[in-house]
Amino acid sequence: MSDSYPASEAEIAARAKAIESLLVEKGLIGTDAIDKVAGAYESDIGPMVGARVVARAWSDPGFKEQLLEDASAVCAQLDVGGMQGEHMVAVENSEQVHNVVVCTLCSCYPWPVLGLPPNWYKYPQYRSRAVMEPRKLLKEEFGLDVDESVDIRVWDSVAEIRYLVLPERPEGTEGLSEDELASLVTRDSMIGVGEPRTPEG
């Protein structure tokens, strides 16, 4: 079945059901398990979790220090962690430094804080360019203009360490609550291809 391509959507769907049904028949999986583990990423594991972590770091300098020291440990204190985020490292953006994350070999991504990656992160276009021309890529494809005076650090996460970008806290957010701050933190800002929202929108 797999030697002709591109496969039709109908064929792919049939192959997926075929595997699932054979595993069910053999008593090796339950359909409830598939729904439950996949469903978790549709409901409660996603960028809103990372946004909470970032907002806490913006509000609490002690927490931020710990986050940059050992992200997995402090995330565990917030009950944040799990598959594809067993070893997380946070890297901090500043006026002098902009961080951006990629996996040139596959699609490694910190699931517990960002959920499952968007398609563009997994496809060849982003993966090929991020290590070679990140500044151009960010400007052309994401509308993010990183000033020439700012260093760009690209993290190619090809081993089992997963990177989370800690974006700069936007100006004009003094006095905002942690929840309000979290609402400004975007998925893209935690990958390094965007910036957080500003209170004005």
């Binding site: 959507e9 792919i12 769907a13 997926a16 059901k17 595997i19 699932e20 595993l23 999986i29 398990a33 598939i34 729904d35 439950k36 583990v37 996949a38 469903g39 990423y41 549709e42 996603g46 040139t104 070999l105 959920g115 499952l116 968007p118 398609n119 563009w120 496809y123 060849p124 276009q125 982003y126 993966r127 090929s128 360019r129 991020a130 290590v131 070679m132 890529l137 494809e141 994401f142 190619d156």
Partner: peptide, 30 residues
């Protein structure tokens, strides 16, 4: 893929769903 040329533009999908159709969810869960 690091450093390859000619693969084209990045296709950013607005409001992208976690799974685009039921079979993707089945494959992930499997």
């Amino acid at each position: 893929l690091g450093g390859m040329h000619g693969l084209g533009r990045v296709d950013v999908e607005g409001n992208e769903p976690v799974f685009h159709n039921p079979w993707e969810k089945v494959v992930f869960g499997t």
